[in-house]
Design a protein around this nucleic acid. Structure first.
Length: 356
DNA sequence: CGTTTTTGACCGGCGC
DNA sequence: GCGCCGGTCAAAAACG
């Protein structure tokens, strides 16, 4: 009896100290993450200030619509290996987005009312006037407005995933607001808005006609709120043109990262895969940063690091803290994420090295 | 019963 | 001006 009591006490003590360790580890990682994010933002701002022209070049690299001639202006060496269907997809989206933006410039009666309503709700000094509203705002007196010019292009990212589900779970909450049959597809196109209040981000999801197992997802705009770590990692990966490994024809190979990475959706859960084999990106000009690092590949995987999101086995309704804890506690994930962020900073700090 | 999805209507752009 | 098309709205239906 006494023996069992002691055993329980020891177990409790062990669990308590483990909890403490985990807590401090989470705090440490959270701090590191915040520091990195702050550094990334300040570097971006600094870089954009020093070289305004670089913005357009970056947009091109990130697959963002150009202000003019977006579909015809394809810089040398860029996206040459893109699946032609993806290229068409992006181009048409850019065109559509442009026309939709022009549409916003001349609001209909109904839209004008909505706009005025939102204006009045934001007029109390609340600065949540989002990008969408800025685009909708009619330019009355040239550039004297307090807002950026309406020609400011929206970020457009496309992602192609193999999925049987109607949409790919990407860590964000979306509200469906429409579905349409389109002329050139046998499959309907679904329209989603980010469910966060005042967030302007929208996405369109449509199954590929040629290969119905593939889902084309187009994201438009930028989130104006904090994203979950998973969503952030996915958006980050998308910015680097990461792609689904199962895609036979459409592997986007222009990534200049020292590793290749991909998002795939097994069922409804996202899996982020980072492949540090040199073969994966033979054209990379960068040395493999992980070759002598402390990140150890899985046994038998031959320098192949795979991070399967804990969300794979996790209910999305689980509390945010638990979610963050499980993800951040995985050293493989943080290493991979840090590598992506570091790579972004490296590129931002060395504009002349951008391959365009 | 509140939230989310569905779906027909509506709107504006575009080509003819 | 008309019809087609894609994007959005909003009432109704479905869902949990």
């Amino acid at each position: 009896m006494e023996y069992h009591k002691n055993e329980h006490m020891a177990e409790l003590k062990r669990i308590r100290s483990e909890n403490q360790k985990l807590k401090s580890m989470i705090n440490l990682m959270y701090n590191n993450y915040e520091t990195l994010q702050a550094q990334l933002i300040s570097q971006q701002e600094e870089y954009l200030k020093s070289s305004p022209d670089s913005m357009n070049r970056l947009k091109l690299r990130l697959g963002i619509a150009e202000e003019t001639n977006a579909s015809t202006h394809v810089p040398q060496g860029m996206d040459c290996s893109l699946d032609s269907s993806i290229t068409r997809f992006e181009s048409s989206q850019e065109k559509e987005s442009k026309s939709s933006m022009e549409n916003h410039l001349l609001p209909s009666k109904k839209r004008k009312i909505n706009y005025e309503l939102e204006q009045s709700t934001n007029a109390d000094g609340n600065s949540c006037l989002n990008e969408d509203l800025q685009n909708k705002k009619p330019q009355i007196s040239g550039e004297s407005s307090d807002y950026p010019p309406v020609t400011q292009p929206k970020k457009i990212l496309t992602m192609r995933t193999r999925s049987e589900a109607t949409t790919v779970s990407d860590g964000c909450q979306w509200r469906k607001y429409g579905q349409k049959m389109t002329r050139h597809s046998l499959w309907p196109r679904a329209y989603y808005k980010c469910a966060a209040p005042y967030c302007p981000v929208r996405k369109q999801v449509q199954r590929c006609t040629q290969d119905p197992s593939m889902l084309n997802t187009t994201y438009e705009g930028e989130h104006n709120h904090l994203l979950s770590p998973v969503a952030m990692a996915i958006m980050n990966a998308m910015s680097h043109r990461l792609h689904v490994p199962e895609t036979s024809a459409g592997l986007i190979g222009d990534s200049d990262l020292p590793f290749s990475a991909s998002i795939s959706s097994m069922g409804s859960s996202p899996t982020i895969t980072l492949d540090f084999t040199n073969n994966a990106n033979p054209g990379s000009r960068y040395p493999n940063p992980m070759s002598n690092q402390s990140v150890h590949p899985q046994q038998g995987s031959d320098n192949f690091l795979q991070y399967s999101s804990p969300l794979s086995n996790m209910n999305y309704s689980q509390s945010g803290l638990d979610q963050m804890a499980s993800i951040r506690a995985d050293p493989k994930f943080t290493s991979a994420l840090a590598a992506v962020i570091a790579e972004s900073m490296l590129k931002l700090g060395a504009p002349n090295k951008l391959r365009l």
